[in-house]
Simulated scan of single mutants.
Amino acid sequence: MPARTPNLLQRIGYICGRTLPTEYSDWVLNDLTGPGATRRYLVRMLVPIVLVLLLFLLVPGPLWMGASMMALLLLPLIYFTVALTYVFRRNRLVGHGLDPALADADVRRRAAIERAAYEKRHGRA
């Protein structure tokens, strides 16, 4: 049976931080840890803020002034959004009743492959 996907209203609620019912656990797991999860997270966090920050371009004066005011807010926002990706994923997994260790399962899998290759290269396998 394929994983159920939430409808439009449920997705909007999910993006805004609501918890989905347990029948969507597979979809949530794929959304938070599957391919493209980091890209989806960054788009969901940054696009709405950038749309609001574009209002700075309406400030009277030279264009560079509005753009620099945007940059003063946007650059730290991007930095902290990227830095807190892992924390956000773990929090969302816990909120949906899933194991928070799944947030870095891909990293651990790649580390195990790299470790096995290292041991094979150096005659420890």
Rank of each mutant, 00 (worst) to 15 (best):
Y86R: 00
D106C: 01
L54C: 13
E119R: 01
R92A: 15
V107R: 13
N7W: 03
V28N: 04
Q10C: 11
A103E: 04
C16H: 10
I78R: 00
W27G: 10
R18F: 09
R115K: 14
L98A: 12
L63F: 00
R121N: 08
V82F: 08
L73K: 03
D106L: 00
M45N: 07
L63N: 09
Y79S: 08
T5Q: 03
Y24F: 14
P62I: 06
A105Y: 06
I49M: 11
I49L: 12
V50A: 15
I12L: 14
T22C: 06
T22L: 04
L58D: 12
I78W: 00
H122W: 14
D31W: 05
G66P: 02
P35I: 11
G34W: 00
Y79I: 07
S25A: 15
W27C: 11
M65R: 13
L58K: 13
G36R: 01
Y79A: 12
A125R: 09
P21V: 04
T19D: 10
C16Y: 08
R39G: 11
V59G: 07
A83M: 12
L75R: 01
N91A: 13
L63C: 00
P60L: 11
R121K: 13
N7Y: 02
T33W: 01
T19A: 15
D31C: 08
L63T: 15
V50E: 14
V87Y: 02
L84K: 01
Q10T: 11
L55C: 10
L58N: 11
R89Y: 02
A117N: 13
